[in-house]
Design a protein around this nucleic acid. Structure first.
Lengths: 298, 298
DNA sequence: TTTCAAAATTCGATATATTCGATATATCAA
DNA sequence: TTGATATATCGAATATATCGAATTTTGAAA
């Protein structure tokens, strides 16, 4: 039952970095020290943690099974080391799983608020395929996931809606209205599609739609930010695909106009999910509280 | 964030034993080693754990505050060290708080079953006043409490009924029926009150009743076990106060007869309680499962 | 007040544990 | 086979933990 956090941290670092050598580099040890520490840990726990598969070290079943308890120990140690510290001082890590690109924009207010409230908590963002989010949360790879699906969760997963939004195609009000028919198929359009993330979710959805309709635009134009996208569209440099919430203001005051497409009705949800059985650390509580707060502000 | 279980165990042992010296004795260290370990722990955690109040070491507020996390760490370590072991091999401690004496009898089947299933889990039984049970569970002094009250629990406490029973005054069927009026006040009875636990709950309740009625018995007679009590009563050596469940068989076959008192209607409950926010370790789960199983068997 | 006993602390000596650096071994791919 | 990559082993240097003896602190008894 004798055990120390140093060896456990080395153990976790090996899993994170993928090799003894890289863990040694990260932790400032030599590789032989890491080998020694793991051997010592294995003796202390009376368990084999790794087995050599070829030139790779792989976690044994026992190693996988004890992970929740290793985390329990390290979490406990982390909480103690944060004792008495204010929100702006506490450290730790929160791992978010977010489906590729699209939702980053939605999450911006959250990420900013989080960094502001607790600058020392490391916010690790895994960008994953939408289908892998739940798995990541179930496996404990991510503490919190952001997902699009509204239903169909296993009951070990707690989920809450953060808001709904639509994908819109927008244009400048000075654009020739005759060119804005995006329903009739087989067209060639003499203007650009402006975007900031060509591989983003909106973009891909819209591309699929345009492909299906065989509507081809002049060229693609990539700019830095979604703000830049909007300004370009307002200056009639082309049209753009945007999430509805990002252009609400401009649609209201007429700086931008929506283009009718058959994608109009497509509604998306931003849902945050986390594992039911996970201990909610103060760090995680802060993240969840902020998600709810940001939602209320919208 | 560097920390080891050795120092934490020493820390916990000091609290348990009440002094550095006793902790050193228990753990097989010298006193100076314990001092060193605590000093080291304080440096690692960057916290003062003890303050000298006179010649006594008292836990600081910080010391109290971090206890849940210390427990979290030691629990985690315990689970790892139990990994792969069968139920009969796993170790650990479960602390029960039981109101003085009375319920020990009711708990006997549970205690036996528990010892049988997991002989290496130490079952610590705190005998407390009924009023202190909830507090003990809330303070984390006890993992599971057994209580008599049916309602009126704070919502941090989970409670479940284990069974109900009554207090009975029993006599031999050969006893002169004329002597068995325990309702009319101011009587002197020419026989003994037999009991095995003079300070037990039943006994005290019955004493109160007899005092109020001013019914005085010949003498008190103390025997070893509740089984002995029953045998004495059957042999007409006197009468006894017993919980109803312990004499069901004898009442049915007529070996004993109930004496009518105004206590007849008094119903007691055995309720087990535990803290909602506590992590339910496999050891604790076993205890809770057995409590439910024993209940079902009754 | 003085004295005593029960605790905790300090400190030097020593045994034990940790880390490094160099080298050996194993595996895969070319 | 050779080169690249990865872990294991071993001895020496260093750091840490423990003990035991002497010291200090404190409350209570004389």
């Amino acid at each position: 039952m004798r055990m120390n956090t140093k060896n456990l941290i080395t153990f976790k670092t090996i899993l994170e970095m993928g090799s003894f050598q890289k863990a040694a580099d990260k932790l400032g040890y030599t590789q032989s020290t890491v080998t020694f520490q793991i051997k010592q840990l294995e003796e202390e726990l009376e368990l084999e943690l790794f087995e050599k598969i070829g030139r790779r070290m792989e976690l044994t079943q026992a190693g996988k099974d004890i992970m929740p308890y290793v985390d329990m120990i390290l979490q406990g140690a982390e909480q103690i080391s944060n004792y008495g510290k204010s929100l702006s001082e506490i450290s730790g890590t929160i791992k978010l799983a977010i489906p590729d690109s699209i939702l980053i924009y939605t999450m911006q207010p959250f990420i900013q608020a989080f960094r502001h409230e607790a600058p020392n908590i490391q916010l690790v963002i895994h960008s994953l395929q939408a289908g892998q989010i739940i798995q990541a949360v179930m496996d404990g790879i991510a503490d919190i996931g952001i997902n699009c699906e509204k239903d169909n969760y296993p009951d070990t997963i707690i989920h809450n809606n953060l808001g709904t939004y639509r994908i819109l195609l927008v244009a400048s009000p000075f654009m020739d209205r005759g060119l804005l028919d995006f329903v009739t198929p087989h067209q060639r359009k003499p203007f650009s599609l402006i975007c900031n993330e060509p591989d983003g979710y909106y973009q891909l959805e819209m591309n699929k739609y345009l492909d299906k309709k065989d509507i081809v635009l002049n060229q693609y134009m990539k700019v830095q930010s979604i703000e830049a996208v909007k300004r370009c569209v307002m200056n009639n440099l082309g049209i753009a695909v945007v999430p509805s919430y990002s252009v609400e203001e401009e649609l209201k005051n007429g700086a931008l106009i929506p283009i009718k497409t058959e994608l109009d009705e497509k509604i998306y949800n931003a849902i945050y999910v986390y594992h039911k059985n996970k201990w909610i650390s103060p760090q995680m509580k802060l993240a969840l509280d902020l998600l709810i707060k940001i939602k209320a502000d919208c």
